[in-house]
Computed example of a mutant assay.
Amino acid sequence: MDTEAVRSFVRAADLGQLRHAADELGVTQQAVSKRIAALERELGVRLFTRTARGVELTLDGRAFLPHARGIVADVDRAVAAVRPRSRALRIDVLGLRSAQAVALHDYWRSHPETDLDVVTLRVDDPHVAAAAVQTGDVDASFRTVTDPATLPRDVRMIHAFDSPLELLVGPRHPLASARTLTPPQLRGLRIRVPGIVPRSEWAEFYDQLAAAFDLHVDAAGPNFGDEVLLDALADSADLATLVGARDRYIWPAGHDLRRIPIVDPTLAYPLSLLVRRTNPHPGLRAVVDHFARLAPLPEPVWLPSWAPAPRRGAGDTGRSVVRAVAYPVG
């Protein structure tokens, strides 16, 4: 069924004249007449009768009108759902329990009127995510391309916020009672971080982190998911992992896992947004500004060498940032 013919029928029914419907739809009166005639042939009924004042609905036309209104409304909603300037702001996150999703949820709770669509592209290569931004499949993606020169010309990368790391251990771990830890205290620990994909941005992050602080980060073997890792931490007296402070993890109460902040320096994962250079979604600016107002991390802060420069808010005079360099072992 031709949805434009249905739309022409609805407007003609509402306005009572084909000429007025044609003016509103931006077509000729003859085009509206032909559309309605084709619709009548397809349905096998007459929808209008001609009068001196215009057109009036037949009994069949009256029966069809509410359904036709529903068809037009459904089409309009479908178009709005995929049209970048009118659909919901669509942002790609790595996972719905990630710091990115948590920060977006915090924004939405304070701005519930925002039409927001949080999606997960489920791709490891950030260049694939950049292509999705370029084509408009998503309006922004929480990905980092460590070499910005390889980005598409019409996609840029902006700093969103930095996610501090914590050590996650079970109750029998030697460091379980610590209030905070420093990076040197992590040396020699058995740190398991499954799911590090070779050549991904997080693989480069952990490579630089391990080199800077002489850490052993084990990513070998299959990734069976967070629940399996959390079970292993609860049962082990020496296993640990690194998690983002804003990442959401849920485990049974009996696990009694401990999240321990790492300070002096704070180890931070820089989170960036890939966005289009031109015609960004109108709702994106408020989200980016929200991230810029997040509380600063305890200084000094360690960041990998490819971390983009943070956006500075009013009154921000800078911060102490330690880039990826090797720390003395002794």
Rank of each mutant, 00 (worst) to 15 (best):
L151C: 03
A212T: 06
A220D: 07
A22L: 10
G254H: 05
T51C: 07
Q185G: 08
L215C: 00
A13T: 00
A232T: 02
A286L: 09
V321M: 04
S177I: 03
R246A: 14
D76C: 06
D289H: 13
R153D: 12
V72C: 11
D256N: 11
T135R: 12
S236G: 08
V79K: 14
G54I: 05
R46I: 08
L96S: 05
A292H: 11
A22V: 10
Q17K: 14
L47N: 11
Q208C: 03
D238M: 08
Y269F: 09
P298M: 09
H216K: 01
V145Y: 03
A237W: 05
G26Q: 13
L57N: 09
S320L: 10
E4G: 01
V288N: 04
V301H: 02
T266S: 09
L239V: 13
D214T: 14
H111I: 01
F48H: 00
T144K: 06
W108V: 14
F64N: 00
M157E: 15
S98K: 05
T49N: 11
L18C: 07
E299L: 09
R90E: 02
W108E: 13
A63T: 06
I71Q: 15
G195Y: 09
Q185M: 14
H159M: 08
V275N: 11
A68H: 07
R41E: 14
V128I: 14
V138D: 00
W302I: 01
A63N: 15
I262N: 02
L273R: 07
V301Y: 00
F142Q: 02
M1D: 01
H111G: 04
H67L: 07
Q17F: 04
T51G: 11
L39R: 00
D125M: 06
Y269G: 01
L15C: 10
L273S: 10
E166C: 14
H290S: 13
L94D: 05
G195S: 10
L175E: 04
T58D: 03
I91P: 06
R83G: 01
V197E: 03
R293T: 15
R53N: 11
R87I: 12
E40W: 00
T135N: 13
D247A: 09
T114I: 12
P171T: 07
V329E: 13
F64Q: 04
L229W: 06
P148N: 15
A80Y: 10
A73L: 12
F161K: 10
P265W: 09
R323W: 02
P148T: 10
R122Y: 14
L233F: 09
M157T: 05
E166V: 14
G330D: 10
L168N: 05
L167M: 05
R87C: 02
A160Y: 10
W202N: 10
I91D: 08
A130V: 15
A103E: 12
D289R: 15
L297P: 01
P66T: 07
P300Q: 13
V123P: 06
F224W: 06
P270H: 13
G26I: 11
G95H: 10
L165N: 05
A307Q: 00
R77C: 03
L121D: 03
A324D: 05
S305W: 12
P282S: 08
L104Q: 05
W202A: 04
F64A: 13
T28S: 15
P310W: 12
